[in-house]
Design a binder for these strands. Structure first.
Lengths: 104, 104
DNA sequence: TTAATTTATGTCAGATTAGACATAAAAGCA
DNA sequence: TGCTTTTATGTCTAATCTGACATAAATTAA
């Protein structure tokens, strides 16, 4: 959120903070969640580049459509483990994986 | 293994192949295992840099010594998830994490 | 619009993983 | 050497994660 918008909201009486503040997450918990979101977004990006539906990707991953949807959304029920395994199945190299993770 | 050594063994009648060949792993399975090993090695590196014993690190991670040993060894009972979470607790940045993963 | 396709959300049983514990093995030191 | 500290290995139960399924919501095409 930009500073101007933050100030405006505060002037109106809103208490403004980050989601992290709100949920009381530690830095490492926040980093974990953000990393998961990034990986999920990249999985979606790769799926769309290959012009696959979630069902088609699910077949490749030997999973199902609902889990693919949750992976792409970084759902709490999905581990980073599964996301990395999925990216590797799609042929993502370690260098590419590193590139994804480096994205802030 | 270098080529000269491979040739010598083959000349002696040995059948030479990679561990991957032997176990019949797919490329992505191999990549997953290697990635886990790399992360475990880095966790150990960071522990030693901080001059911590496995017990001390376990306390920080709210885990126990045996699991730390398994993490450092890339044991099958340890997920990449746990390794990444542990590195993040130790303050590893995403850029550092990317650097680790990029290591062949 | 409506129908078809695609994606999102909720639940659950089975599989996997984590922490705890015991104990063995290895390393360091007197 | 023996004693201490550290690390490795094996097993258990509880907790977490996954695939499967149902179904709702959203998107697309006709």
């Amino acid at each position: 959120m930009d500073k101007a918008k933050t100030k405006k909201l505060k002037d109106q009486g809103w208490i403004v903070g980050s989601t992290q503040d709100f949920l009381g997450l530690t830095d490492d918990e926040t980093a974990y969640i953000e990393l998961k979101l990034t990986l999920g977004q990249n999985l979606k990006k790769r799926r769309l580049e290959k012009e696959l539906t979630q069902i088609q990707l699910a077949r490749i991953l030997k999973s199902n459509q609902s889990r693919v949807a949750k992976m792409e959304a970084g759902d709490p029920s999905v581990s980073i483990d599964l996301l990395i395994k999925s990216l590797l199945v799609l042929g993502t190299s370690r260098q590419e994986l590193a590139g994804i993770i480096a994205l802030a």
